[in-house]
């Protein structure tokens, strides 16, 4: 990912977490990416325009996905959430990031067709491989690492 694209991705992601879930993000250096989580939710979606196409993906520790669902829905921790709530919340975060990232990079004239976000649950080992693959940048959200990548 180009440096200037990284800056835009960081800014868009921080804005989305803040406005969607009242969570505040900080850039996390690659050397500082660690997690004690066992499982993670990976969400990805693709976009296709006349000139550009690609993917955007995000990986969130499962515990943070639960907190995201509570915050997005405005629920108290004593309330029950739907079993699909955490994955739905990560999909919505990704959808919003993608919706804001494309005009931030390409301007608001081009039209992009987006695929609905899809999620998979990945293990710590798979997560570590993603980190070591250096394709992702990372934010720290509520003491959790959030990985983000785009093929731009």
């Amino acid at each position: 990912m180009k440096e200037e694209t990284k800056d835009i991705v960081y800014k868009v992601c921080c804005d989305v977490f803040e406005h969607l879930a009242f969570m505040f993000g900080e850039v996390l250096d690659e050397d500082d990416i660690t997690s004690v989580a066992d499982t993670f939710i990976k969400a990805s979606m693709s976009f296709k325009g006349e000139q550009q196409s690609g993917i955007v993906a995000i990986v969130v520790p499962e515990e943070l996905s639960v907190n995201l669902a509570y915050e997005i829905l405005g629920l108290e921790k004593s309330e029950q959430i739907d079993p699909d709530g955490p994955e739905d919340a990560v999909k919505e975060v990704l959808n919003t990031i993608c919706g804001r990232l494309l005009p931030a990079i390409f301007g608001d004239s081009p039209i992009f067709d987006l695929t609905p976000p899809e999620t998979t649950v990945i293990s710590y080992q798979e997560w570590e491989e993603l980190v070591q693959g250096h394709a992702y940048i990372s934010l720290e959200i509520e003491n959790n690492p959030v990985l983000i990548t785009t093929s731009l």
Binding site: T96, G99, R100, L102, D108, P110, I111, F112
Partner: peptide, 12 residues
């Protein structure tokens, strides 16, 4: 109600 960011699409 969407994340759509393309003004061209909104106009459409």
């Amino acid at each position: 109600v969407s994340t759509e960011g393309s003004q061209t699409r909104v106009e459409e």
